[in-house]
Design a binder for these strands. Structure first.
Lengths: 230, 230, 230, 230
DNA sequence: CATGAATGAGAGTTCATTCAT
DNA sequence: GATGAATGAACTCTCATTCAT
């Protein structure tokens, strides 16, 4: 039944190729990967790949695109199924961390795409990344609306800290060793969100809050005076 | 005079090669760079490079090592010249951000090293990164000691958020466009530290505690001012 | 009606393929042309071409054969409709020149055939070229018979000069630029025949001989005019 | 002694490569030739060829250029050593014919160059061909000056007939069979020049010369009348 | 009969590395 | 020490030809 029409066979083959490319790019990077390697992994001849993709760059584009789509879908559907800003953020953190650990090289390839496919660059990256990040943005905005988060929060900064923090953490783990399974993703995600939450949650406006600023200024004055002396 | 001994001539040549390699790797990436290109940029013959470095990978190792050393030196000396946890952190943020923007590709190469030089990996990365990050860790620990930061803060998490947030921000900027000069590094660094500070600072357990901290710090300033007089 | 029998449909398809091949070979040369390109131009699938022709070489053979047949037919029918050696030669010159300019690459392919299809070579070329050139030979022989041309003329040499001169002229024009339409084919053909005529015409052995030829020809014209009357 | 300096070794190697390329291009044509084949014939590695020539096209350019230079030199020095327009022309005819027979494919490649190397085309062909053909032009002009040849001769036409005739003759011979040695180059060259000479030599202006034109016109009238009838 | 997806050999080209000078 | 010419393995991509549908 399924898979017997020509159209379906073609689609399955294309998917097989992209999957193989994903795996090989992940292992060896873009330049390290070879079309021959991808082809043999996909179970097709070298030439066949060029029936589906114009060249190696186009294949990279397809791999990254597909990955981003899956990443975004996973994030969106997870968020939808959960209630509560905090729990949604923790899910997103886990989701991102898991994917970073499993597909680190693919995320790097996205950067490569920028320099390698001129007509890509801004457009391609932006399209994919914006839709992905929009899920996070939505959660944060909802948190602000519900009064859980500071209203004049800089979305850009929280986003940088959130995704950057997760990626840096993933990178450190990966560089430590290749046994991903031993990593306690849940704990990392929870603690990272904890700290971010502490910085981003709505603070009661108290009179004493401004003190630290005053002290900072005084310290700066002291610094300057010290330097004048020497 | 200077540079006339054989030893010095050799060292200058080696430095020229590493510098050239840094520049070319930065522009073209590791696989995009060619030994010929690096040699011509360094003003030496291709073969000469192999007198100083076993192969292309060793050259990469040297470039990354030198970069990390400079990065660490810059961070350490900057921190030393400043007082105040907050201001030290802001300096480190600026420093890291500036270097990310200027040498992004080199930071990527570090990851490459991991997969490309098997005997590198853990060892090399750890050695360099640990010393670099130690500067940050020192500042945070001092902050905790001074009671400015939450004592049971997870250093790993703050570090991930700090460096990860900066790098994610840098990446976004770089993907947006190649004109680095238009980026307001100061503002980004300050706001990022602001938010992190909010999440990491010592939280008032009781109303009175808050005041005592302020008083403590003010007294410290007074001390310093008094010392200036004498 | 026409074209509905199986036999006719097959023939039309074969003709379409050869026509497409002619066009593509003309534009891109033999090695530059692709079966895919020819197939799409002919409006058939790639595989279909192999139902009609054993391989690319056979297709080349067919194209050259068809071209030579058309060339020969055009020459023969043109000569038949004209009277007078000189005017026939001028027609042949124009005819050859026009076809050289329009189908230069195809003429080159004929040479290719020689090296590419071993069993072709002598046989194929000779068959086609002999029948084509036979038209010219006939005209020249008739001219000799009528006493207009030198009796012990070397047919081979005149032929070489005639066709060679035209082709060399065509090549020069083509190399000068691709705008064929601006070339004054008539003028070139006429002047080339003029010069050849000067070298090939019956040379007066004595003063009287010249006159008698003129008289002979005039009488022939008179005869024809008389016949028209009746 | 000779050949021991680096500079000389490089020059000998370049010459060896061009020679090998000439031979292989001659045998197999441009597309039929492979870099591997040329390299092995030249006794160098494939990569070495790319030290001397940017790519296959550049190699073709070098081969054609070198051939044309040799052709021109041979023509010029031969003409210089002979006296008498007729004998000079016969020499040029022999020279061209011999070279056509020995290097036919190379002459064809020149045409290829036109379509293949865009920045070549007119310029390259013209430069080479003009200098080559200038030798012939000089001989003819001298003949006119000496009163041996018709003063209002069209140089372009004589040239087309001369070179075209020789090339057509060569082509016919080559297509007949590959045993070049059996061809009586001298006889062909002499007879071809004979005929051209007859058409181009200065003719005594006689009253009867215009007769043939008159007859032509009468024949044309007869033609038209005949056609009206049918 | 017709299709067009699949094949895989083979091409041009690059470049890290070596080694005679 | 320094050079840079030489190497050749390896890569990407093309395309004539086949064959299951």
């Amino acid at each position: 039944m399924s898979g017997s029409t020509r159209r379906e066979r073609v689609e399955r083959r294309e998917e097989a190729i992209v999957q193989a490319a994903h795996a090989v790019f992940s292992e060896l990077g873009f330049d390290g990967a070879t079309i021959a390697g991808i082809a043999s992994r996909a179970g097709v001849a070298e030439g066949t790949i060029y029936l589906y993709f114009k060249n190696k760059n186009a294949l990279l584009e397809a791999v990254v695109g597909r990955f981003y789509r899956q990443l975004t879908d996973g994030a969106a559907s997870g968020v939808e199924s959960l209630r509560g800003t905090r729990r949604q953020l923790e899910f997103l953190a886990r989701h991102h961390l898991v994917n970073c650990l499993a597909h680190w090289r693919i995320l790097e390839l996205m950067m490569l795409l920028y320099g390698r496919v001129p007509e890509y660059g801004q457009d391609g990256y932006y399209r994919f990344n914006k839709t992905y990040v929009a899920v996070f943005d939505g959660v944060v905005r909802a948190g602000i609306d519900r009064g859980e988060l500071e209203p004049d929060l800089s979305l850009a900064i929280v986003r940088d800290l959130f995704y950057g923090g997760l990626e840096y953490s993933a990178r450190t783990q990966l560089l430590r060793g290749p046994d991903i399974d031993g990593i306690d993703v849940d704990a990392i995600a929870r603690r990272l969100v904890d700290m971010l939450w502490a910085g981003a949650q709505r603070r009661p406006v108290a009179a004493g809050d401004d003190d630290s600023t005053v002290v900072d200024r005084l310290e700066a004055v002291a610094d300057r005076l010290e330097r004048l002396k020497t």
